[in-house]
Design a binder for these strands. Structure first.
Length: 405
DNA sequence: TCTGTCACG
DNA sequence: ACGTACGTGACAGAC
């Protein structure tokens, strides 16, 4: 992979270098059986869905699916888009218990997405060494992040059990090993710093689990009393704050009444008051200047703030706050890439940076170098930032990308 | 070509 | 009262 500094490419395009992660045909043979199983399960799903709907239709058409669910079967209509009622994953989740067809559709969606987008495509993109080469775009994402295309290596599945199988298909070259290093909750740490919020900073300085600690603050319950449901609500609130969520948005995502969502947000802002003032001050400044800047001076113009249209203007307000946080995190990982490459080179390491995914760096190198390389990488990533709260990095080593994570 | 959906962070 | 979470890229269906 070529190094990615801000001046690296005037055309804004970088291709990954000689050693991208491989997607091995051998391994694929094993998974060939799995894909066959996937195809069979999809076919079975289809049959069951048609039987429950009492007709055949194109399941992949949101229009036709909407007619079946909301007109023929009379299920609850949630959000609507430009052309009709939404049938997206959140809607299906909310109406899952209303009809047994819904879980079948959810399963069909999961299988068909993973097979069509990844399993059918990636093996076709391997080179003669079974390796895959992505292209990084440096001048697309408005926040300063890199993006990845053809194929997009920054959205390889991991969240579901099936998705994890796909992640595991990316293997180190024979005789090499992968080292994955990711920043832990980098955006929330950046928020704690830029907002100078003492309670949030303290959570990170103590090394506590930030979502559990937030749940404890918001719900006024001791950390020991926080169950997984409360923690996941707090996680939603934590990230929602970074993105500028509304009570309506939180209510929709947590499937709770709007009043309750409003109470959660109010409780959060009361417990972390400097986050509230950071948001209003950032928006105020952005309205005056017409732009925001990240900690390292990356600038984003936000013309939306001048719009007369309310919807566009409030979008501008969310962009202002989010760009400072996401953009600063992008600055940090770019600096980390430069530092890691330089330090590996100076120590005459044979370990190479092969992929960057917003808060994660992936390296490949000789197995006997993995331990010292992991130590070096962690040191360089943490060392980008000498502020409070500190950054934290999780490092893993493995033969494939799933094991390394 | 647009829209909806969904994969990741 | 408004409309309702940020940033991407890929795929399928509708027009």
């Amino acid at each position: 992979m070529a190094t990615c500094t801000r001046s690296a490419s005037s055309r804004g395009v970088l291709t990954s270098g000689r050693r991208p992660p491989s997607f091995r045909a051998g391994r694929w043979g094993v998974n060939g059986r799995w894909t066959a199983a996937g195809d069979e399960e999809i076919a079975a799903c289809e049959g069951e869905i048609y039987a429950l709907a009492n007709e055949e239709f194109v399941i992949g058409s949101p229009q036709q699916l909407g007619e079946i669910l909301f007109e023929k079967l009379g299920l609850s209509r949630k959000r609507r888009g430009k052309t009709g009622y939404s049938t997206d994953a959140r809607v299906l989740q909310a109406i899952r218990s209303e009809h047994e067809i819904v879980p079948k559709i959810e399963r069909w969606r999961e299988l068909s997405t993973l097979i069509k987008t990844y399993l059918d495509v990636l093996p076709e993109l391997t080179d003669e060494r079974s390796r895959i080469h992505t292209t990084f775009l440096q001048a697309v994402a408005q926040t300063g992040r890199l993006s990845s295309t053809n194929p997009n290596m920054q959205n390889v599945p991991i969240r579901t059990p099936l998705g994890r199988e796909i992640r595991g298909c990316f293997e180190a070259e024979p005789g090499s090993i992968l080292v994955s290093a990711d920043y832990s909750q980098i955006e929330l740490r950046v928020l704690a710093y830029v907002a100078d919020e003492p309670v949030l900073k303290e959570i990170f300085k103590r090394g506590e689990d930030v979502h559990t600690a937030t749940a404890s603050q918001v719900f006024a319950v001791a950390a020991e009393g926080i169950d997984p449901v409360m923690r996941s609500k707090a996680k939603m609130i934590n990230y929602g704050i970074v993105y500028g969520l509304s009570d309506y948005g939180l209510a929709d995502r947590l499937n709770i009444p709007r009043e309750e969502a409003k109470e959660f947000i109010d409780a959060y802002l009361e417990r972390f008051p400097r986050v509230a003032s950071f948001m209003t001050e950032t928006v105020e400044q952005a309205k005056l200047n017409g732009h925001v800047t990240t900690l390292w001076g990356r600038r984003r113009q936000i013309p939306e703030l001048q719009a007369r249209n309310y919807q566009v203007r409030t979008l501008g307000e969310r962009l202002a706050v989010n760009t400072v946080i996401q953009g600063t995190a992008a600055d940090i990982i770019k600096l980390a890439m430069v530092r890691c490459r330089r330090a590996l080179s100076e120590s005459e390491s044979r370990t190479r940076l092969i992929l960057t995914i917003h808060d994660e760096l992936l390296f490949e190198g000789p197995p006997d170098e993995a331990a010292p390389a992991a130590e070096l990488i962690e040191r360089e990533m943490v060392g980008v930032w000498e502020r409070e709260p500190p950054l934290a990095v999780d490092v893993g080593v493995g033969q494939n990308w799933l094991e390394a994570k």
